[in-house]
Amino acid sequence: MSNLIFHTHPSQRLQGQLRVASDKSISHRSVILGSIANGNTRIENLLEGEDVLASIRAFQAMGVNIVRNIGEHGPVYTIDGVGLDGLRGPDQDLDMGNSGTAFRLIAGLLSSQQFASTLTGDASLSKRPMSRIIEPLTQMGAIIHSAEGRPPLSIKPCEGLAGIRFHSPVASAQVKSAVLLAGLRASGETRFIETAPTRDHTETMLAGFGYPVSVSGAEICLEGGHALTATHIQVPADISSAAFFVVAALIVPDSRLQLNDVGMNPRRTGILTILRRMGADIRIKNTRMQGGEEVADLVVSSSELAGCEISGDDVALAIDEIPVICIAA
């Protein structure tokens, strides 16, 4: 395969409107929860990247019928959910590729199943620490074997988990999600206390599927044994992907860009707070709710930016956007 060579030239201005790629975090969770819901879940604007496709293949290997069709505005996925107790043991290892999100969330879900499973990944994923999910899942009663806390994970059949109250030593939406997903089939209540605010897509989407979840400050609580009801999901555009176009429009003179359908989850909009503090002209319009998530269109105009201080709390809400913030600076 020949090498690709890209030539770039300075732009005089940026004008127009676009929709960036869909949100990967929400795409993963749509597939996971749709697979264990009762009924047919319809997903529009699913991100068709390799990470999300790894989630789809994993649930297909566990007996979930997932069909891709072409709708009026692009691909539409229909998932025939099998319910909380309907997954079946896979005939082979579940390869998560390079997706840490899929690996950790699906590990949490599988820890309560009455069949054995093994989660693997590529060379890069195999170096990542999994002890942070193994510890709380083991406390709940899961039987998990690993390669010194790293993939692959071998999850043994489980007769039943018990809910725990877990105070996470790390701020991680993936750890939180793994524990909450394990709690869906656990006895009693599962309580997760966050060290710092993290993305809340899992608890938001669980509520969108009709599963009762309570949030009190830093503590998220759910009781095992309830059912998820299939729903219709429109995955919003990813604010992390939109951030690059936002900054480009801000620093290129005489620019005006409109970015449509951007996810505006309050745990993800730290990038906008920081840029506005720097003097950015960013207007938010057409705000609405889609599947429990706030979505809006962003209108960005070129601006004279000034430096500002970024606190630890700011970083927690803009962790993926720090590189592009540095470009703006």
Rank of each mutant, 00 (worst) to 15 (best):
S2F: 10
T8Q: 10
S11V: 12
V20M: 00
D23Q: 05
S27C: 09
S27G: 04
L33V: 14
I36K: 00
T41S: 14
R42M: 15
V52W: 12
Q60H: 03
V64Y: 00
N65Q: 10
I66P: 07
G71P: 11
G71D: 11
Y77P: 06
G89A: 08
D95F: 13
M96R: 00
T101S: 04
R104H: 02
S111A: 10
S112P: 09
Q113H: 06
T118W: 01
L125M: 08
R128E: 14
R128D: 13
S131R: 11
S131A: 12
E135G: 02
G141Q: 09
G141D: 12
H145C: 03
A147G: 00
E148T: 09
G149F: 10
I155L: 04
P157D: 05
E159D: 10
G160L: 10
I164Y: 13
F166I: 07
H167A: 05
A178Q: 03
L180N: 10
L181E: 03
G183V: 15
R185Q: 14
F192W: 07
D200R: 03
T204S: 01
F209R: 02
F209C: 07
E219H: 05
L222S: 07
A230D: 15
F244M: 06
V246Q: 09
P253F: 03
R256S: 13
L257S: 03
L259V: 14
V262P: 07
V262G: 00
G263N: 15
M264H: 04
N265T: 11
K285E: 15
R288G: 10
R288K: 13
D297M: 08
A306H: 15
I319C: 01
P323M: 02
C326F: 05
